[in-house]
Amino acid sequence: MKKNLLLVTASLVALSAAAPAVAADLAARPYTKAPAMVAAIYDWSGFYIGINGGGGSAHTTWDFVGTGSEGSHNATGGTVGGQVGYRWQSGQFVFGVEGQGNWADFSGSNASALFATRNRTKIDSFGLITGQVGYAWNNVLAYVKGGAAVVGDKYEVSTAAGALLASTSQTRWGGTIGAGLEIGFAPNWSVGVEYNHIFLADKDVTFAGLAGTERIRQDVDMGLVRLNYKFGGPIIAKY
Rank of each mutant, 00 (worst) to 15 (best):
T130E: 12
T117H: 07
Y155T: 05
G147A: 13
G175S: 14
A186L: 08
D105W: 00
K122I: 01
E182S: 14
L114P: 03
L181F: 11
I123S: 02
G180W: 06
Y155K: 06
W173E: 09
F126G: 04
A179Q: 06
W173H: 09
V140W: 12
V193Y: 01
A186G: 04
F185Y: 13
F185T: 10
N138K: 07
S109H: 02
G146I: 07
G175F: 10
S112C: 07
A111P: 00
A142H: 05
R118F: 02
G192W: 00
E194R: 08
A149T: 11
E182K: 12
N139Y: 00
Q170V: 08
N138G: 10
V193E: 02
L181G: 11
V133I: 15
E182T: 12
Q170Y: 04
A179T: 11
K154G: 11
F106E: 03
G184K: 05
N139C: 06
L114F: 06
G178S: 11
A161Q: 13
L181P: 01
V133C: 06
S112V: 05
Q170R: 14
Q132Y: 09
S109P: 00
L128V: 07
N138I: 07
S109K: 08
P187E: 07
R120A: 12
G174A: 08
A104W: 00
V140M: 15
A113S: 14
F185K: 08
I123W: 00
A160L: 15
N110E: 01
N188D: 09
Q132S: 12
V151Q: 08
A166W: 02
G180F: 07
A160I: 15
G131M: 09
N119H: 07
I177Q: 02
I183D: 03
A142W: 05
R118T: 15
G108P: 00
A113W: 00
K145Y: 03
V157R: 07
R120Y: 05
Y143A: 09
G184R: 06
A142D: 04
G146T: 10
H197E: 04
Q132A: 12
A113V: 06
A136I: 04
R172V: 15
D124A: 12
T130V: 15
V151D: 05
S167E: 13
A113C: 05
F115G: 10
I183P: 00
G127H: 10
T171L: 12
W189Y: 09
T171H: 10
K145C: 06
A142K: 08
